[in-house]
Computed example of a mutant assay.
Amino acid sequence: MFTIGAHLSINKGFENIGREALSINANTFQFFPRSPRGGKAKALNPEDIANFEELMSNSNINVILAHAPYVINLASKSEKTRNNAYEIFEDDLKRLSQLPNNLYNFHPGSHVGQGVEKGVELISCSLNKLIDENQKTTILLETMAGKGTEIGRTFEELEMIIEKVELDEKIGVCLDTCHVYDAGYDIKNNLDQVIDEFDNVIGLDRLKAIHLNDSKYGLNSHKDRHEKIGLGELGLDAISNIINHKSFRNLPFYLETPNDVEGYKEEIKLLRGLYKE
């Protein structure tokens, strides 16, 4: 089954976002548990969650993806910034424990001049404190485009974090097609080679989700500028190859393209037409 969705707002509650996803022919969705700029999260409504669980059981939505705020940085030089990131992360995991079948994706962070090894040490230290053996949520490290001092621009950097996490069965990876292409992995012309490299360095069993985005600037640009499907440097043929690749076909895909809900509806229609059942 082709599992495809988009980034939607939960401002009106989970039941409504689930219905909105179904209305655009999506069978999953991504959301921010709070503002992407951080801040306090809105209290969850138990009745809304119960209604959403019923909706899931009566539809083909079987997994959802939460995205951490962009502002959190577990690798920061600043203890205050790290503590703030930790508190948000911890609170998000507590909130997600109330929701069914979910993943939690985050940008690993930026070492801001301390070096990758120090950044990795700080991130993994926090994760070892945050992760509980009883949690059901799988935490996903996102592949990054390599802007500035971002950690996660290479598969090796992500693996450095994973190997330091004690409860590593709770850790996976979300591959962003725009980011990896911008970082220098040629998924347009050498998709099989990139997948083999990912498997050799991290392991395909760690890959739990894909952010499906075209790229405005392209290979090795390190720009992280998403483009609508088929209108960027990756192009429609490459996107089609990605969604139909045997290593990816059973994963959930999430659109983060510069679109509104109607735009996502059109992209999902396009992608379902390209997917080979």
Rank of each mutant, 00 (worst) to 15 (best):
5 G>K: 04
6 A>K: 07
6 A>E: 08
7 H>Q: 05
7 H>G: 12
8 L>V: 03
9 S>G: 08
10 I>R: 00
10 I>L: 02
11 N>H: 05
11 N>G: 15
11 N>S: 09
11 N>M: 11
12 K>E: 03
13 G>I: 13
14 F>W: 07
14 F>Q: 04
14 F>L: 04
15 E>G: 00
16 N>A: 15
17 I>K: 00
20 E>C: 08
21 A>D: 09
21 A>T: 08
23 S>E: 12
23 S>I: 15
24 I>P: 07
26 A>D: 10
27 N>A: 06
27 N>R: 05
27 N>E: 10
28 T>G: 00
28 T>A: 02
28 T>H: 00
28 T>S: 05
28 T>V: 02
28 T>P: 01
29 F>R: 04
30 Q>D: 02
30 Q>K: 01
31 F>N: 01
32 F>K: 03
32 F>T: 10
33 P>H: 01
33 P>I: 05
33 P>R: 00
34 R>E: 00
34 R>D: 01
34 R>C: 03
35 S>H: 00
35 S>L: 00
36 P>N: 02
36 P>D: 06
37 R>T: 14
37 R>K: 09
38 G>R: 02
38 G>A: 03
39 G>C: 04
39 G>P: 03
40 K>R: 14
41 A>D: 02
41 A>L: 01
42 K>N: 11
43 A>R: 15
44 L>N: 07
44 L>P: 04
45 N>M: 11
45 N>I: 15
45 N>T: 14
46 P>T: 11
47 E>Y: 14
47 E>V: 14
47 E>D: 12
47 E>H: 11
48 D>R: 11
49 I>C: 02
50 A>E: 13
50 A>V: 13
51 N>W: 10
52 F>Y: 08
52 F>E: 09
52 F>S: 02
54 E>F: 02
55 L>Y: 05
55 L>N: 03
55 L>G: 06
56 M>S: 05
56 M>W: 06
57 S>D: 13
58 N>Y: 13
60 N>E: 14
61 I>G: 01
61 I>H: 01
62 N>H: 12
62 N>D: 13
63 V>R: 04
67 H>Q: 07
68 A>K: 06
69 P>I: 11
69 P>H: 04
69 P>M: 06
71 V>Y: 01
72 I>T: 05
72 I>S: 00
75 A>V: 07
75 A>R: 03
76 S>W: 06
76 S>M: 10
77 K>D: 13
79 E>G: 15
79 E>F: 13
79 E>V: 13
79 E>R: 09
81 T>G: 04
82 R>P: 01
83 N>Q: 09
83 N>L: 15
86 Y>K: 14
86 Y>A: 10
87 E>A: 12
89 F>C: 02
90 E>A: 12
90 E>Y: 13
90 E>T: 11
91 D>W: 08
91 D>K: 14
91 D>L: 11
92 D>E: 15
92 D>C: 14
93 L>H: 06
93 L>M: 10
93 L>N: 07
95 R>S: 15
95 R>W: 03
95 R>C: 10
96 L>H: 06
96 L>T: 07
97 S>M: 02
97 S>K: 04
98 Q>H: 12
98 Q>R: 14
